[in-house]
Amino acid sequence: MATATVIFAGIAIVLAILLIVSSHYLSTTENEVIDKIESLLPRIQCAQCGYPGCRPYAAAIVTDKADINLCPPGGNETVRRLAKFLGSDFSPVTKYSTTANLNEIAFISEELCIGCNLCLRACPVDAIVGTHQSMHTVISDHCTGCRLCIPPCPVDCISLVSRNA
């Protein structure tokens, strides 16, 4: 009886030590979790989730327990992936009037552009080139179709076109 107790206690202690050591080595830092969540988001940087970009939203999910169904471009598919990764419950994504998506890109009508530079400052991914007083244009390979450049334009010269057209 006594030997059995000792043996099992010994095993328990050894395992406990192993567990503590491994949890120390295998622990994921908060940053790694945020990285992973960010990689599950569409990374269009459209701010439609209410945060200034995908990374801030990912950080908010981890630190402020923000809801996981706020990203309209990602849709339910993204919510499902997030729910699976975080082990939380699925709930359908919140609606947004016009959802940003990678199939569209911004197009600046060059004859209307007055060179105000406002769109360039709004673009989260530096997809617009141009300088004050001169015509601006969108680098289509860099544009994510986030639509953030559209409201600031004072002459409404930016529209969305299909990416493949």
């Binding site: 960010e38 569409p42 990374r43 970009g53 995908c54 990374r55 991914v125 530096d126």
Partner: peptide
């Protein structure tokens, strides 16, 4: 998306 993330 990866490129957008980098640029952001």
């Amino acid at each position: 998306s990866n490129a957008a993330q980098k640029r952001y």
